[in-house]
């Protein structure tokens, strides 16, 4: 119970700090919005091809914007020296990981909650489907689960802004492919039974990589 309270305290701290500064959310939201707009103009999408590219556009926008947020997540702690305050507390390191990871999930979901309506208007697609929303949730969880771990790794390097996407995207390939396939499937009304393998892959990825991060975070944050 104490463990959960500590995780909740870290989430609370990140949310309150973010509500005051909007450091992470504003960067993610503006980037995602611009990405969606640029893709819309660049592809000059027509009704006949919009369903084919829209899932890819959505997940590129979410993942690129998400990287911006992940970069800031630990960078703000590191640059302001507050990371050591966290590490000095008698807290299991995995509680720090889960606290930061859940904070990142919340910020990404908030960004997605604003970008998806814009996406619906521009692409004229019914994204508010339970299946699509489930995929967005699972994809975001996988993205933030791995991303939080890699963000903690990259924050101690000089080229952290460049290093994080280079490290992260190859690992995230299964999440991105599954999410795009599933989103496209739900938009095309393909029965879930035909895409169940992608859903299983997404769920297994989330579970496995969050478990790996749970076990390795201690080593990542140690000097």
């Amino acid at each position: 119970m104490n463990y959960l309270r500590q995780v909740a305290a870290i989430v609370w701290k990140d949310v309150v700090a973010e509500l005051r500064t909007k450091d992470i959310f504003s960067a993610m939201f503006v980037f995602a919005l611009l990405s969606v707009l640029i893709f819309q103009f660049a592809f000059d999408l027509r009704v006949e091809n919009v369903k084919q590219v829209a899932p890819g556009v959505l997940w590129v926008a979410i993942s690129f914007a998400g990287v911006l947020g992940l970069n800031r997540s630990f960078a703000l702690e590191k640059d302001k020296g507050s990371m050591e305050g966290l590490l000095l507390a008698p807290v299991d390191r995995s509680a720090i990981y889960f606290g930061k990871m859940l904070g990142n999930v919340l910020f990404m979901l908030a960004m997605e909650a604003l970008v998806i309506p814009v996406f619906i208007i521009l692409f004229n697609l019914p994204l508010y489907l339970p299946g699509v929303l489930l995929v967005v949730l699972l994809g975001t969880l996988g993205f933030a689960g791995v991303g939080t771990l890699f963000s903690a790794m990259a924050v101690n390097t000089r080229a952290r802004e460049v290093l994080l996407p280079i490290l992260l995207f190859p690992i995230l390939v299964p999440v991105l492919i599954s999410a795009v396939k599933l989103t496209g499937g739900f938009l095309d009304n393909i029965p879930l039974s035909e895409n169940i393998n992608w859903l299983q892959l997404l769920v297994v990825f989330d579970v496995v990589f969050i478990a790996i991060a749970f076990m390795t975070f201690d080593y990542v944050v140690e000097e």
């Binding site: 701290k13 309150v16 302001k80 020296g81 507050s82 507390a89 008698p90």
Partner: peptide
């Protein structure tokens, strides 16, 4: 205590102490 404060500058004094108090249970 170091020359770096190890505090969150966007939080108030009370919020900082409350946060660390929760970490220390």
């Amino acid at each position: 205590v170091t020359h770096a404060p190890l505090l969150y500058d966007s939080l108030t004094a009370e919020e900082n102490l409350r946060f660390f108090g929760r970490l220390y249970r």
